Amino acid sequence: MSQGTPVVFVVDDDISVRESLELLIGSAGWRPETFASAEQFLNCPPALVPNCLILDINLPNLSGLDLQRHLSVGRPDMPIIFVTGYADVPMSVKAMKAGAVEFLTKPFGDEELLAAVQSALEWSKTALAAGSELHELRGRHASLSRREQEVMALVVSGLLNKQVGFELGISEITVKAHRGQAMRKMRARSLADLVNMAARLSGAH
């Protein structure tokens, strides 16, 4: 399988479940990675390709919900499909509220699981792409000089060039020069584009 093959992680303490899911996932063209406990899974490095987690809610020691809490901090972009042998509605609601993408009760059909995995991987692919774009945007912003960053911040807040100059104690012509440089380095096609970029950068902190 290629390096870009999506990874489907499975955490389930039942070896027969792990083995059957490993075969099913592999037959669908994805790369399965199985673990018998939440602790084992936490020791594995994050995947850099689209991925998701099939997680048994009833695990010894660290439960599925405990692991979900851990991942919400360390790997918030990982979609989780919960599976359980018990039709526990309150637990299901809790898992979904905490961000699980699906909750399946054993025994579930192969097609039902594969559809859930396909949907989760599409979600992961989108999240990875957005993360990559944000990383690039941060790099562009870091390439601005301190003065260009100051001018950009004031311009996107709605101030006119003259007002920006007054705030920073520089001439309007100097403001225009810095503004032009900031637009070029950020690769903004318009002021609206620059405002949108600034909003994405501030929303990501």
Results as ranks from 00 to 15, higher is better:
E33C: 12
S190F: 04
P32D: 08
N196Q: 15
R69K: 13
T34D: 09
D56M: 10
P6Q: 01
S63L: 05
G85K: 02
A47G: 04
S143E: 15
V101F: 06
D56W: 02
N43K: 12
M78N: 05
T84M: 08
R189N: 15
L191E: 13
S72T: 03
L55Q: 03
V101C: 11
A130W: 10
A100S: 06
R184M: 14
L134Q: 05
M78T: 06
E150H: 11
P76K: 01
L159V: 06
T84P: 09
L144I: 03
E148L: 08
S145Y: 03
K106R: 05
E133G: 10
D13G: 07
Q3L: 14
N61P: 10
T126M: 15
F166I: 14
E136D: 14
G109S: 02
V117E: 11
K125Q: 15
G29I: 02
F108P: 06
G158S: 07
E167L: 13
G29T: 01
L65H: 00
R147W: 04
M197E: 15
R138E: 11
F103T: 02
D110M: 05
K185W: 04
A120M: 07
A199V: 08
T5E: 10
N161T: 14
S92W: 02
S2D: 13
R200N: 08
L59W: 03
C44A: 14
G99K: 00
V89R: 04
G64F: 01
G158R: 00
S119G: 08
V155E: 12
V11Y: 04
L53N: 07
N58Q: 06
L55Y: 03
R146L: 14
L154M: 12
G99P: 00
V175H: 04
G26F: 01
G203Q: 04
M197G: 09
I25W: 02
E22L: 09
E112I: 13
A38D: 09
M78D: 03
G139L: 10
L23K: 10
Q68D: 12
E19W: 12
A120D: 11
A127E: 12
L144W: 04
S72L: 13
T84C: 10
E148Q: 13
G109C: 00
P90R: 02
V7Y: 01
K94Q: 15
Q68P: 11
Q181R: 15
E39G: 07
T105V: 12
L128E: 08
S27I: 00
A36H: 11
V93L: 08
Y86W: 06
R179N: 13
W30K: 00
R69D: 14
G165F: 06
S157T: 07
G131N: 10
V73R: 14
P50H: 02
V7R: 02
P107T: 04
S171E: 10
